[in-house]
Design a binder for these strands. Structure first.
Lengths: 141, 141
DNA sequence: TATTATTATATTGTTCTCAATTTAATTTTG
DNA sequence: CAAAATTAAATTGAGAACAATATAATAATA
């Protein structure tokens, strides 16, 4: 058992599958003018309406180096606003706009469209979900 | 069940876990001056010794846009050579050098070091492996 | 055999990702 | 209170990743 053989790696199919699914999202997301990272950012915005960059980064496992330019683009598109907190000016508060809220309707079809691309049974999907979160939890702590 | 809620996504933990493991590799790989993508490229080289860019891309699910600059860097480091095929000059043949072979010894410790970071049972790891390849196979076809 | 089509790699441009550093605001401490 | 430490974003720089296009070589065809 060669530990440096590609087929003996667990991380490689993880890395490849992750890129693969993002690629599958692309044609659906480009119709609503979002990249995958912008899409999951909007998911947080649809749920929370208002959130600091720091919490956003904790949700998405991303830092300001990635989020700052991304949020500026979403702001340019009129989907969110960015403003400093009055209580603590270090914090940047991101808020969803009516236009951002409206985009949710268009995005509702995306999960359904994606289901046509990946065929896992509900049990398999659940197992995968649990295992991935188990890994993520370990990376946090 | 909101289909646009982050916690209801299967792809998000996939995407996040993949980035997470690459980040875990980084300190180990930086000691042997490789990035993660360079590391898996070298895995193919250690196994095959000589390979065309096209086959390399099929192994790694990457295209020439990613591989061309990466292989030039590996060439600069003296780990591989790049030369056009005599039979068909469209093909670029990548070959491992003695220095590239020697790097394998240094890389042998990496998988062991990584095992200290992610704690899945052998059964869980196997399940995850199978599910990820199931997804990858579907993306190919 | 020319022309056309295909194939393989390279290039260009955009976005993402992250480490490391900088800047500014706030908190802690001496 | 002033200095030092901490925190949050932004910035910078390097490497990926990929779509789209370009270039060059080979194969197919009219």
């Amino acid at each position: 058992m060669d530990p440096l053989k590609l087929e003996n790696q667990l991380c490689f199919p993880l890395y490849a599958a992750a890129r693969g699914v993002v690629k599958l999202y692309t044609p659906f997301l480009s119709k609503i003018d979002l990249t995958y990272t912008q899409y999951i950012t909007m998911m947080v915005m649809w749920e929370r309406k208002t959130v600091g960059v720091k919490e956003l980064g904790e949700c998405l496992f991303l830092d300001s180096g990635t989020l700052t330019p991304l949020l500026k683009k979403l702001e340019q598109q009129g989907l969110v606003t960015r403003q400093r907190s009055k209580e603590d000016e270090r914090n940047l508060i991101v808020s969803i706009t009516p236009r951002g809220e409206a985009l949710r309707e268009k995005a509702l079809g995306v999960p359904t469209q994606m289901q046509g691309c990946i065929h896992l049974s509900p049990e398999e999907a659940d197992t995968l979900y649990q295992l991935l979160y188990k890994m993520l939890d370990q990376m946090k702590g």
